[in-house]
């Protein structure tokens, strides 16, 4: 779908499926699953390096930065201060100003702390970051994030890693009507139909990790997700027929005996 690129803050993205790099068995499986997904954006976390094991490999050895856009996240940050610190470290460790901003509110749900998110986003935008915020399925918060300068919003479908699919399709639809920036459904997707549905609603992209990495066959699921996102996007652009309560015959009556 190269004729239909996703554009965020002037950057062009080839794929509308974005993937995380966590929870895989090893770097090789990570690389192969990402390859199968067709994604060109991969999210990564920022952590202390292992300094006791000299031979430990680096994820970046497996992800060609010429091929993939590395999108660091602030996963695991529960305060504005931490999220800002990790964003700055991510910028220092990488090559771009992109950050997937997460300010997590609670360990059990991993729902975003949206008040903290807005505060952290303001600070980072002032420092020149391109902030892609992981947010709740709340249209008001999404609007506020756009108003302060986020070039896209990333509302969740369901709690991270839950596989529940889109829990609030009506809110998602309102978000899509409310904001004038790309909407990337992030977190909670369970299977291909969830991803297709998000795209059929008009989401601009879908980001997932666990649904692929946690599948029995991650490579096969990565392929399924690739098709699902493409199919959902095409269906959205093609324009579905309206739902009706009663039948409409497809075959003409004329010519019957």
């Amino acid at each position: 779908m190269n004729q239909d690129p996703l554009i965020i803050a002037g950057r062009k993205f080839r794929s509308r499926l974005w993937v995380g790099t966590g929870k895989y068995k090893n770097f090789e499986e990570t690389r192969n699953a990402i390859e199968a997904s067709g994604a060109d954006v991969v999210t990564v976390a920022v952590r202390r390096v292992n300094i006791t094991d000299n031979k430990s490999e680096n994820l970046l050895d497996y992800l060609d930065p010429k091929k993939y856009i590395i999108l660091p996240n602030t996963a695991g940050c529960y305060t504005v201060e931490d999220a800002v610190r990790y964003s700055r470290l991510a910028r220092a460790a990488g090559v771009s100003d992109l950050v997937k901003l997460e300010v997590i509110g609670d360990e059990r749900t991993l729902f975003p702390d949206t008040a903290g998110l807005i505060e952290a986003a303001k600070i980072l935008i002032a420092e020149g970051f391109v902030v892609l915020p992981y947010t709740n399925d709340d249209p008001i918060v999404a609007k506020k994030l756009v108003d302060i300068g986020c070039p896209a919003v990333m509302p969740l479908a369901a709690p991270i890693g839950s596989g529940l699919g889109i829990r609030n399709p009506y809110n998602l639809k309102i978000i899509l009507e409310t904001v004038n920036v790309p909407v990337i459904v992030d977190a909670g997707v369970g299977t291909a139909s969830d991803a297709a549905l998000a795209m059929e609603y008009g989401a601009d992209a879908v980001l997932m990790n666990t649904a692929i990495a946690g599948a029995k066959d991650p490579l096969m699921m990565a392929t399924a997700m690739r098709y699902a996102v493409d199919a959902g996007r095409l269906a959205f652009k093609a324009g579905r027929i309206p739902r009706k309560l009663y039948a409409t015959a497809s075959s003409p009556i004329e010519g019957m005996l």
């Binding site: 995380g20 790099t21 966590g22 929870k23 895989y24 770097f27 990570t30 999210t43 990564v44 976390a45 920022v46 952590r47 202390r48 390096v49 300094i51 680096n58 994820l59 970046l60 590395i70 660091p72 996240n73 996963a75 695991g76 470290l89 991510a90 460790a93 990488g94 997460e102 991993l110 991270i160 890693g161 992030d186 977190a187 980001l207 997932m208 990790n209 666990t210 990495a213």
Partner: peptide
Amino acid sequence: VEILSFIGGGSPA
């Protein structure tokens, strides 16, 4: 001194 790098991460665990 803190030395950090990118590791696998999501949608996080």
